[in-house]
Amino acid sequence: MRANEVPTEEIRRDPAAFADRVTADGRLDRRAEAGRYRLVVNRACPWAHRVVITRRLMGLERAVSLAVTDPRQEIIGGEPHWVFTEETGSPGGLDPVLGIHALREAYLARDPGYTGGVSVPGLVDVESGHLVSNDYDRLALDMATEWGGLVRDGAPDLYPEPLREEIDAVGAEVYRDLNNGVYRAGFAPDQEHYDAAVGAVFDRLDALEERLSGQRYLVGDTVTMADVRLFPTLVRFDPVYHGHFKCNVRKLSEYPALWAYARDLFQTPGFGDTVEFDHIRVHYYWVHTGINPTRVVARGPDPRGWLAPHDRAALGGTPFGTGTAPGPVPAGERVPAPA
């Protein structure tokens, strides 16, 4: 979708253009090796965010370097593209490791004839400069389960086998109605599509409120991929989805259990320390000129509310089970704290 257009049909997401699997033993497509890959993301993108959270929870920061693009996309060849700029720490507008200005260059290095869209996250092979995968869900799952000895000691089991069916079932509902539902509402081509989409968004939020009133996490007694998939949408809800995407029946902060659950995760290492609210607000309000032609960026809401006590520990469970919290955020990856 072009940055300055609203789609004339209901939004649908294309399957990943490149989806090589990375595993510890290389039995599928590629082998997990420290220093071999660079993860290109934008901190505004919820799909990239779940991979960033997984990478941090699993302690893969030293194994897989991180490249952050500018929240303002650049129009190249008539299409919006994720690019590196001086403002986001890339001297000369080039990523210091890959030497590229736009992520599309890694796509074209992999396939010179590629004409499809470019999305984040993108896992790039450092030596060849080729894109390995832009399959956000598979990237996160593989980092959680397939990277073997490269993960940190004490890393949590985000995808425990006994709970996988439930995790995936919950994730499918959340994706359909909420993760993607907010986009279906925001880019609805007419009233009928908007009403259906926004109705599904709040039906799902209502169901999550009921579910989380009696349990600390979505599935089981610890953080799992179900929580990793939900959190990026929740943390963007009041800043951009409520106003910018017209999902304004209620705010997240008006759901007692869901808002406390979101704060609990935000205050858990690996979640809130990967959130950059300025990038989120700037990207959505700047790029989507079809629904915000003035590019005026909303100021609120006050992010300090995310640090308020949540009292969720009384429901039982611990975030990492028998594991431990990840260590400090690497110096080059720290995001501003709510202030």
Rank of each mutant, 00 (worst) to 15 (best):
Y217A: 04
V219C: 08
V219D: 06
V219A: 11
V219G: 04
V219N: 07
G220C: 12
D221W: 05
T222I: 01
T222A: 14
T224F: 09
M225C: 07
A226F: 08
A226K: 03
D227I: 10
D227S: 12
V228S: 07
V228H: 05
V228Y: 01
L230A: 11
F231W: 10
P232L: 06
P232V: 05
T233D: 03
L234V: 02
L234C: 14
V235S: 03
R236K: 06
R236C: 02
F237D: 05
F237I: 05
F237Q: 08
D238P: 07
P239T: 11
P239D: 11
P239L: 09
V240K: 01
Y241F: 15
Y241G: 07
Y241R: 05
Y241W: 14
F245K: 01
F245L: 07
F245N: 02
F245V: 02
K246I: 00
C247N: 06
R250K: 15
K251E: 15
L252T: 04
S253T: 12
E254N: 13
E254I: 07
Y255I: 01
Y255E: 02
P256T: 12
P256Y: 11
A257H: 09
A257F: 04
A257G: 10
A257Y: 05
L258M: 09
L258H: 11
L258K: 07
W259S: 15
W259H: 14
Y261A: 06
A262H: 02
A262M: 00
R263S: 01
L265A: 00
F266W: 09
F266M: 09
F266A: 03
F266N: 03
T268W: 06
T268S: 09
P269K: 06
G270Y: 05
F271S: 03
G272H: 03
G272V: 05
V275W: 02
E276G: 00
F277H: 14
F277E: 13
D278E: 15
D278C: 00
H279D: 15
R281L: 15
R281C: 08
V282R: 05
H283S: 14
H283F: 11
H283C: 10
Y284Q: 04
Y285A: 09
Y285G: 00
Y285I: 05
Y285V: 00
Y285E: 05
V287E: 13
H288S: 11
H288G: 02
T289L: 03
T289I: 05
G290F: 03
G290Y: 04
I291S: 14
I291A: 04
N292H: 12
P293F: 13
V296D: 12
V297Y: 08
G300W: 05
P301Q: 11
D302Q: 09
D302E: 13
P303V: 08
P303S: 06
R304P: 00
G305N: 03
G305F: 01
G305P: 00
A308S: 12
A308K: 08
A308L: 15
A308N: 13
P309T: 10
H310F: 04
H310Q: 13
D311I: 02
